[in-house]
Amino acid sequence: MKTFFSAALAASLVLGGAATAQDYAGHLKARQGQFRILAINLGILGSIAKGETAYDEATAGAAAQSIKAVTMINQAPLWPEGSDNMSIDGTRGQPSIWDDFADFESKWSALGTAADAMVVAAAEGQGAIGPALGQLGGACKACHEKHRAPEN
């Protein structure tokens, strides 16, 4: 009986103490969805930069504007405390994000600056898109380097 109680106690401690991915399911979908929108639009621009699809100002411009729009989403509400990869499954966001949230936000804002450059480049023509992609890629890497865990 005693064993049963201590087992039950242990179970309730475990279940009661830790957050689960379920608690943050919406946050994770929102976070990962915005990165997916970025990737799809980067893909459109990348294909133009590599010469796989023909340059067209409207297509390139729409992709660049979509990237810019994502960078304007306020990040703070999407990253509640306790939704890091040490606390829950389903994310690769490392605790370093919360240890230094100002750094995280400044890296997000650098992505916005790179997106502005892409909006300009997309209107200029095919040749300008490659270098602007380089800048965007640099902004992605700068944050992933520090704050994203490798894939399992």
Binding site: L38, A39, I40, L42, G43, G46, K50, L133, G134, G137, G138, C140, K141, A142, H144, E145, R148, A149, P150
Partner: peptide, 22 residues
């Protein structure tokens, strides 16, 4: 292209130590 820009074919990007390598 990945080694130049850090973009995978589906436009995820390099992270961790690989970001330095790129």
């Amino acid at each position: 292209y990945y080694l130049e820009t850090g973009f995978t074919p589906d436009f995820d990007s390099a992270g961790g130590h690989m970001a330095h390598v790129v």
